[in-house]
Amino acid sequence: MLSLTNVSKSYDDRDPVVDQVSFAANVGELVVILGESGSGKTTTLKMINRLIAPSSGVIRVNGQDTSTVDPVILRRSIGYVFQGVGLFPHMNVAQNIGITPSLLGWTSNRIAHTVDRLLELVRLNPADYRLRMPFELSGGQQQRVGFARALAAEPSILLLDEPFGALDLITRYEVRHDFQKLQEELGLTAIMVSHDVTEALLLADRVIVMRNGRVLRDATPDDLVADPGDPYVARLIEMPRAQARFVEALAP
């Protein structure tokens, strides 16, 4: 369905920021890329819809080499949730969500209908939020609109760069739950970038651990916990448990 083979990216003559990365996601799978800041997660994600052109390697979507496809067409078929949300500040919520459908030439009726359905999906009351401008939304609400925008054109592939970053823990839990349900229902293939180990272990069908632009591990959550296989990965996996123990110790 989606595969990366020996994909690298380097800027100028410097060391590669993504180095010989290979992994694949089957239809309907949710793959989480986990890694510290600067490890190359966003770069990897952007190469999949060619916002960044790879320096070498092959990326296939539905068996087709993406370097042979018009990037504009490719991007319209892939939903992308940006790390910084990136809503269009001069467009209201409905226009932001409906942008890709309108680029694809959908009727305005169909777009309006889709917008309302998606707003409900991300738990924003359409009547309230449809006509708001992005600056009239909280950070978390913006993130949800960004999420709805990525889903609007009914893509089969979804790329998400820390989509829950700006949400408080409880909302985060709810939205994450919604997302998981939705992803399963729609049979979406999703690649999601995260810092959060617990989130990765809870959601992912498979977890990719990246460091310094390289893939350290590619495993199911179960396998990862049972056998980290690398001291860095082991420490990473241990973090949530260490935190839980600390919280536990505070309890009377």
Partner: peptide, 24 residues
């Protein structure tokens, strides 16, 4: 980041110019 979002949602260069850069 807004320019990148315009590319990300699948705008052509022209659409990005007319719908995003020029209005902003």
């Amino acid at each position: 980041t807004v320019i990148e979002a315009a590319d990300g949602v699948g705008m052509t260069k022209w659409q990005r110019m007319m719908q995003v850069e020029l209005p902003l």
